[in-house]
Design a protein around this nucleic acid. Sequence first.
DNA 1: ATGATAGTTCTATTGTTTTAGAACAAAATT
DNA 2: AATTTTGTTCTAAAACAATAGAACTATCAT
Lengths: 112, 112
Amino acid sequence: MKTVFHPSIKEVRLENILYALSDPVRLSVVQQLEEQGEMTCGQFKCAEQKGKSTMTHHFKVLRDAGLIHTQVEGREHLTTLRRKELDARFPGLLSSILSAAGILKTAAKLRR
Amino acid sequence: MKTVFHPSIKEVRLENILYALSDPVRLSVVQQLEEQGEMTCGQFKCAEQKGKSTMTHHFKVLRDAGLIHTQVEGREHLTTLRRKELDARFPGLLSSILSAAGILKTAAKLRR
DNA sequence: ATGATAGTTCTATTGTTTTAGAACAAAATT
DNA sequence: AATTTTGTTCTAAAACAATAGAACTATCAT
């Protein structure tokens, strides 16, 4: 069983979060995780379909930034958003970004 | 009298905001503007001193992203944060980023 | 007028990022 | 056992970004 590197929440740097989310592919990944919860790599949908190795790269950037958690389960890689930890570390940050990105849940609340 | 390009607030894209603020020099510029209000280019302090042309570049990135406004006044360039407009466009975004960056005003409120 | 001040533009270097093809590895299915 | 599925690692190309030196422009002060 393989283990994947994840930074501890204390090590998470704001700059890295912002950088990771400044890419449309990665922002979309985080949006989908917010909407769907746990997902495998293959379940993500991109506007333009990207190569597998490209997605592997983007997951690594998100993971290194502390945004997502990856758990290997059989041959699948289960990805989740580190929502609670991030909310504790940077209160309101993720919510306002996802809301600004026009995500269902949060955006709906703010619009009416 | 020279005019400088500024995007209209409607054109401002979240990704560009996040990208612009993912650089420590630029994040620091925005922090200082939040603390001090209007500033000239020469008034900004960087951890490591940067060349003038480097700073010109960073101001342009911030301006193109819609974060700052530059007004030419004599031989000085007066820079301000587009706070109100940004707050209207992306509610809570700038506040949570500046708070996460450990900025005085906002951070102080959240800490106690 | 001369000089100093404030900042830009041009150009170049160095390093980083996005992208993906090809080969690979491990688990699941037949 | 052979094949399919799921995703990684390696490698490389092309695009982009951070940095700053040098020359420049415009304003202000003497």
